[in-house]
Design a protein around this nucleic acid. Sequence first.
DNA 1: CGACAGGTTGACCGTTATCAAAGATCGTGG
DNA 2: CCACGATCTTTGATAACGGTCAACCTGTCG
Lengths: 232, 232
Amino acid sequence: MEKNKTCGHRHDQHKMCVSLVPIFNHLEVDQMKEIMKAAQSVAYKRGEIIYHAGDESDSLYIVSRGKIRIYRLSESGKEQLVRILQPGDFTGELALFKEATHEAYAEAMTETNVCMIQRTDLQQLLLKYPSISLKILTEFSNRLDESEKQTTRFATEKVETRIALFLAESLADPARSNELELPMSKKDLASYLGTTPETISRKFAELEQQGYIKQKSPRIIEILDLDGLLLV
Amino acid sequence: MEKNKTCGHRHDQHKMCVSLVPIFNHLEVDQMKEIMKAAQSVAYKRGEIIYHAGDESDSLYIVSRGKIRIYRLSESGKEQLVRILQPGDFTGELALFKEATHEAYAEAMTETNVCMIQRTDLQQLLLKYPSISLKILTEFSNRLDESEKQTTRFATEKVETRIALFLAESLADPARSNELELPMSKKDLASYLGTTPETISRKFAELEQQGYIKQKSPRIIEILDLDGLLLV
DNA sequence: CGACAGGTTGACCGTTATCAAAGATCGTGG
DNA sequence: CCACGATCTTTGATAACGGTCAACCTGTCG
């Protein structure tokens, strides 16, 4: 929120987002400026598609304002929400390094601004500043690990457990507050967790009835018993 | 098989595997030699653990001979098989770039030889030869994409479809032969596909009865109707 | 030849998807 | 800023899918 105040309507100011991204924020001021020069700011309206499967789009997208839904279609055509990007997050990386097209869809959930960096520009930068590659490798490692963990959860845990784990992880700092705001609708959450809205609704009701959580509003959840929740 | 002939008992010869790995095989002979110097050859017996979750092991492991099972434990303690490494494949990458411990287990399925490269050595090499980073980034991109695709399958497809997709993809070259050898036992396959041996057994029997496949032996499957299989 | 792991088959039941319909919420345009 | 419509959410009834338990079979290897 606060950081958006520094973003006016001029494109250059949106490029500030470059400095917020973990893969760049270790650089010198000069190097940062060089990257911002390669970046280009673009705005999307709610519902607009930023890229879609089959797209040859070859840019890195860094979110400076708004939210982006990343989703995939399975072989049988069902949609799954893969992640939600918030300001500071980036996407497009897959099309950057593999000579192939996107396999996912990116859609603006609200008014959204992104900084784009072209593949060719980025590759130049990577060869010039190898430390950026190490940062991106670190980011990829983490994401790969996350993705495999998620796969293992789908493979071995039942829906109720997946929900409990999701809630526990969403509670960023249990010491500070035990309230959390869902980053997406329950419909999207269902898609993210590989289940249906009906099941989400019922499981939330169950967890509430058992005294583990309290639904203060559709999007605000209070965790009453974190330990109990994790034993579900 | 063929390539193992070049590997004798001396360690240096096992290091040849370095040249077989896609992330290195674009390099000059001199650079390759430099990498081999940093590599160290190690042998494991069937069942031996190469690394395990919580391990601080910080090496890249390249398989030169044998097979390695990579598996994870879910929060509730259930095991899932993540992948099987064959000669030329590598692992350990996750612990290389994130300052954290392994979250997976690696176990030798047979007599296995691996080349290890220490994290510090590798990072030196990456900073010296940025093109290696680009190769690794490409490899990571592909694996990330694979992993997300797998997650989406677990989230949206039923067991029967996951089996059908697995079989279709295992059939490397449909034009050449429609027979395939399962790279693992059906028990492991069940774990890999997030189901149980009983269900695997039943679904295979169903697919056979419907005329899509023929089980010529426990490990050899003939695909009789690939298109039909994919419509399951 | 016997032991043991892997594989198969049957019966049963728990979990979750599906269909349907009513109710709440949110974003948009006036 | 409010009201409308679209979309999300909830709840119920039903059924399919797949997991579990148990028994038996099979192949492999010492």
